[in-house]
Design a binder for these strands. Structure first.
Lengths: 182, 182
DNA sequence: CAGTCATTTCAGAAATTTCTGAAATTGAGA
DNA sequence: TCTCAATTTCAGAAATTTCTGAAATGACTG
């Protein structure tokens, strides 16, 4: 499978960005290729589109599946596995955020709670700092949970409103703050 | 410098999480240690607190400075550099988000724009997908820019409101959507 | 059930990243 | 200007991650 110039550039970019995104080059490239393909691709096509080994493709696809970022499809009379990315970019974004939260935030939240459960150890500053960090993460993940539930339509509207939201917020009563009162 | 048990556990956790966060173990550990210290620490103290080489500490601190995550301080009559993390967790969060955006998103946005500027190449599906992705990123980064400008007080209020925001949004007129109309 | 095709696994090779110790550089004070 | 503590740089060692080819596994077909 010969890639078009556009595909090639896009794929290489995603490969390079991979390490910053916490995935490896091949995984980034596979994802990019699938993202730009109108048709599902099988492992063979991906392998020679990218010029990597068949086994590398297999591992990359496994990784993408663990991220829920690809879907497997089958065609009648063809026993190979075909892969696509979800059509809807919002769905992709939701998945990405959910997975990153799971990998990058949840373990730390768990750890912080564990540390607090062990009870005061006499290091007041550190204990306070840890509690503060846990509260902050809880506030943010709580907000995330709420946003996660919103339909895309509303989410888009909210994002489009942007800073106008500040006005709306001010109109509601009951200020609450986690920050230190001066 | 002997770490307390609490510091030790916290530091080790941040070290392990480092790779998921796109920093290396030492950088994660240095940050964790500074985060839990009520007093600024110098490179020497960090080095023996963590049990890494002096040069590793130096490189880690340089990295953290490039992320804007530590501040350097000096004491009269002491020419060593001392380091702290910002007190305010919200400030830290803002910095983190800004830096991750800069490293993980901006380069891709630039790339997508470049690809579009090169003009139609005949691969309609890929071109459409790229445009769609660019629009999505622009919507989200635009929203981010707006949120970034809000004072912490309002941000906290917004997060606390959570799903109640949906109601507020509905009350404003002028629905707008990037999603496909059914 | 033998043969074929597709996929996965896995040990080791290759590449990359992290870390160290030694040397070089910096800069404040004598 | 010289000295020396502090810091940075950097080449190579160590550790880790990624990638490959070969072998194993699975699963359908005649």
């Amino acid at each position: 499978m010969k890639l078009t110039n556009l595909q090639q550039e896009f794929v290489l970019h995603f490969g390079e960005m991979g390490s910053r995104w916490g995935i490896n080059r091949t995984v980034g490239q596979i994802y990019a290729l699938l993202f730009l393909s109108s048709e599902p691709l099988n492992a063979e096509q991906i392998t020679d589109g990218l010029g990597v080994s068949r086994s590398n493709t297999s591992m990359g696809l496994k990784e993408l599946q663990s991220w829920n970022l690809v879907r497997m499809k089958h065609f009648p009379g063809d026993r190979r596995d075909y892969f696509t990315t979800p059509e809807d970019l919002w769905e992709i974004t939701r998945i990405l955020i959910a997975e990153r939260k799971k990998r990058e935030i949840d373990p730390t939240l768990t750890k912080l709670r564990e540390l607090e459960l062990e009870g005061p150890k006499g290091d007041n500053y550190a204990e306070a700092r840890i509690a503060e960090l846990r509260e902050m993460i809880e506030l943010m993940t709580g907000f995330y949970d709420d946003m996660e539930k919103l339909e895309t339509e509303r989410l888009v509207k909210m994002m489009t409103l942007g800073s106008k939201i500040a006005g709306l917020i001010d109109k509601t009563s009951g200020a609450l703050s986690l920050t230190k009162r001066k």
